[in-house]
C-alpha cells in the first residue's frame, strides 16, 4: 500500500463513520480489507483504493467501512455498568417515571447484540419493573452486525464470555453448535442500522443511552458532535453511559459526570 492509498482510506473512514485511524492502527487496513478486496475481485489493496477514488461499485464503500469497524462485544461487558443500571439508574428512573411506567433505552453501538440482550435480560429479571413498558432500541453502523444481532444466534465461545450460567439456562437453547436466545428477548428489541454521525432525532427521546467503547475511535471534534447530539436525544433527567476509558470532560459542557458513579453522565 502506498501513502496515498492509506490517505484515501483514512479520509473515507473519517467521513463515513467518524472512525479516526491513527498511525498505530493502520496495519488493520491490510488484515481487514484483504478479504473485502478479494470478494470484490481486486488483486490488491492498491486496486481497491483506486476504485474507491474513481467510481466505486455499489456496496464497496459500505463493505470497507463495515470491515474496519470493530465488532468486539461480550455479554454484561465490564460487569460494573450493569450493576449501576440495576442499583442506581433504574431505581432513580422508576421514581421519575412512576406516572407513565415507560422506560426507553438505546444501545447506540450494539455490534452483534450482546449489550442490548444483556440489558433485556437484566430488565426482565427486575421484579419491580413488572407491568412497565420497556423499550429497547439497538443500533449499529454495520448491517451485517445488526442482522447477526437480530438473529440472536451465538457461538459456544460467545455465550461463555460474560453471560452468567443462570441466564444461559433461562434464556437460551442449543441449536447444533450454536445457542439461540429466546424469541421473546429478540422481539423485545428494535434493531436498526444507524450511523452515529447522523442526526438521532428520528429515533425519539431516551431515558438511558449506552454508547460504550465507541468514542475512543473518534477524534475530538467527532466526539463533541456525537456527544452533543446524544445529549439532545436524552431526556432531561436521563442517563448516558460511556465506556470506562471515555469521558465528556474537556469535550462538551452539555453533559456532566455523576460523582461516584464512574462512566455515567447526565445533561446539564
Amino acid at each position: 500500500m502506498t501513502g496515498l492509498d492509506t490517505q484515501i482510506l483514512t479520509t473515507l473512514l473519517k467521513e463515513r463513520s467518524g472512525l479516526s485511524l491513527t498511525g498505530d492502527k493502520q496495519y488493520l487496513f491490510e488484515s481487514r480489507l484483504g478479504p473485502v478486496a478479494r470478494s470484490h475481485g481486486f488483486k490488491s489493496l492498491g486496486e481497491l483504493t483506486d476504485a474507491l477514488r474513481r467510481s466505486p461499485p455499489p456496496g464497496l464503500v459500505r463493505a470497507v467501512v463495515e470491515a474496519m469497524a470493530t465488532h468486539e462485544s461480550l455479554f454484561f461487558r465490564d460487569v460494573k455498568p450493569f450493576e449501576e443500571l440495576r442499583s442506581f439508574i433504574i431505581p432513580k428512573l422508576m421514581e421519575a417515571r412512576a406516572g407513565t411506567k415507560t422506560l426507553r433505552f438505546w444501545s447506540a453501538a450494539c455490534s452483534t447484540g450482546q449489550e442490548p440482550y444483556s440489558l433485556a435480560m437484566l430488565l426482565q429479571d427486575e421484579p419491580r419493573l413488572v407491568g412497565w413498558r420497556l423499550q429497547i432500541t439497538a443500533t449499529d453502523l454495520s448491517t451485517q452486525a445488526i442482522e447477526r444481532a437480530a438473529a440472536g444466534r451465538f457461538t459456544h465461545f460467545e455465550v461463555q464470555r460474560g453471560l452468567p450460567a443462570k441466564y444461559l439456562v433461562k434464556h437460551f437453547k442449543r441449536n447444533g453448535d450454536d445457542w439461540e436466545i429466546a424469541p421473546a428477548l429478540r422481539q423485545a428489541i428494535t434493531w436498526k442500522v444507524f450511523n452515529l454521525l447522523d442526526d438521532p432525532a428520528p429515533l425519539g427521546s431516551f431515558d438511558v443511552i449506552l454508547c460504550r467503547n465507541v468514542l475512543i475511535y473518534f477524534d475530538q471534534e467527532t466526539k463533541r458532535l456525537v456527544l452533543e447530539r446524544l445529549a439532545r436525544t436524552l431526556a432531561k433527567d436521563g442517563f448516558l453511559m460511556l465506556g470506562s476509558a471515555e469521558t465528556t470532560i474537556g469535550i462538551t459542557d452539555r453533559l456532566r459526570p455523576v460523582p461516584e458513579h464512574h462512566g455515567i453522565y447526565v445533561p446539564t
Binding site: 461480550l74 454484561f76 460487569v79 465461545f157 461463555q160 464470555r161 460474560g162 452468567p164
Partner: peptide, 9 residues
C-alpha cells in the same frame, strides 16, 4: 478469555 470472564463474574 472464558476462564477470566467466569472468574470475574
Amino acid at each position: 478469555s472464558i476462564i477470566e470472564s467466569k472468574f470475574a463474574q
